[in-house]
């Protein structure tokens, strides 16, 4: 009987990591909603939420409390189980993608070396892709189960948008993987820490494509077609209320955080602080600096997302599809060929 022959300390360590990362991303997502409203307000010469607590800092808690306290409504003709499954799936999928992100260099606690990453699997990025494609089901199932034409329309839009942009995203990624030679996010980050340049120097076009596609995958403006208020009322979560709606909204913000973290790790050196030699300080301090650096990079990306959202209007649906299939994919293919040619020329 070798069933229970785990390294229990390892299991506990990973469980603690998971708990910390899940709660941290929920907390960050909570405050990203606040940041979204503040950024929107400041870009529009308004003060934004300022009543709850100093500078309105308690506003997200008030919002969350409101969402929880609201009445749960399940429409009579909705498919009850799928209606509940939808937001759960969306939330699970977006939280799961944080498993492969390396948050920093290993730290030493109680004589153990703890990796600041939940799982270093050798197909890290593909795992993220798989999880993201699962997130589409959350939207589709929710939209269909609502038994509402608008919700269904928007769910179909979300799915087709996600599939279309996943292609260009994958092609942009292939070019990056050709230079790194590894799918593990940890290896990619370590290459950038030890190498002289971040991957953005080698893959500027690839990053641009990836960024645009990430925006489309997160359903952010200018790609927030699934939530187009003026033609689809509210989109796939129209029939939802209370915390089920909250899950959908939260999942969007967590997706945004995770895609920021992934872009920071893949193109901007992850936890690498430029012009700073981590070996000069104690490993634990270096790890903390790394985590802080990654968080700052994530915040900057989120700001960029918001900045774009409050500047650019939404695409029309045919424009969205044209951009995805006729611009992004050929560009990504060109980028891939160019990268391959350059690699061959160097050899």
């Amino acid at each position: 009987m070798t069933i229970l022959s785990f390294d229990w300390a390892f299991v506990v360590e990973k469980l603690i990591m998971i708990a910390i990362i899940v709660f941290a991303s929920l907390g960050i997502a909570l405050y990203t909603t606040f940041g979204e409203r503040k950024v929107a307000a400041i870009l529009q010469d308004r003060p934004g939420p300022s009543r709850a607590g100093p500078f309105g800092l308690l506003q997200p808690l008030a919002d969350g409390l409101k969402l929880i306290m609201k009445e749960e409504i399940i429409p009579t003709h909705a498919n009850k189980w799928l209606f509940i499954l939808g937001p759960g799936l969306a939330m699970t999928a977006s939280l799961m993608s944080c498993a492969v992100i390396p948050w920093g260099t290993p730290i030493h606690v109680f004589g153990r070396t703890v990796e600041l990453q939940i799982a270093d699997i050798n197909i890290g990025i593909l795992y993220v892709f798989a999880v993201v494609s699962m997130g589409v089901y959350g939207i589709m199932i929710g939209g269909w189960a609502s038994n509402n034409k608008f919700s269904l329309m928007s769910a179909l839009r979300a799915a087709s948008q996600a599939i279309s942009y996943e292609l260009a995203m994958g092609l942009a990624l292939i070019a990056l993987l050709m230079t790194t030679g590894s799918l593990s996010l940890k290896t990619i980050v370590e290459q950038q820490v030890t190498g002289h340049w971040w991957n953005i120097v080698y893959q500027p076009l690839g990053f641009f494509i990836f960024f645009v596609c990430a925006m489309a995958e997160c359903n952010r403006t200018p790609f927030d077609l699934p939530e187009a208020e003026n033609e689809l009322n509210f989109g796939y979560h129209q029939e939802y209320s209370s915390m089920k709606l909250g899950f959908y909204l939260f999942a969007e913000y967590i997706n945004m955080i995770m895609s920021s973290a992934i872009m920071a790790s893949m193109y901007f050196g992850g936890y690498d602080l430029p012009f700073f030699d981590e070996t000069t300080v104690a490993p634990n301090i270096a790890a903390m600096i790394g985590v802080g650096t990654l968080l700052i990079k994530i915040v900057l990306f989120i700001f960029l997302f918001m900045w774009i959202r409050w500047t650019i209007p939404r695409f029309r649906y045919d424009q969205l599809m044209n951009l995805g299939w006729k611009t992004m994919i050929p560009l990504a293919l060109f980028n891939m060929l160019l990268t391959g040619a350059l690699i061959l020329a160097k050899l």
């Binding site: 010469d45 774009i308 409050w310 500047t311």
Partner: peptide, 14 residues
């Protein structure tokens, strides 16, 4: 985007 960014430093009339 530069236009919206410049609005971050404008005085709020609120």
């Amino acid at each position: 985007m530069l236009i919206t960014f410049s609005h971050m430093f404008k005085k709020q009339p609120t």
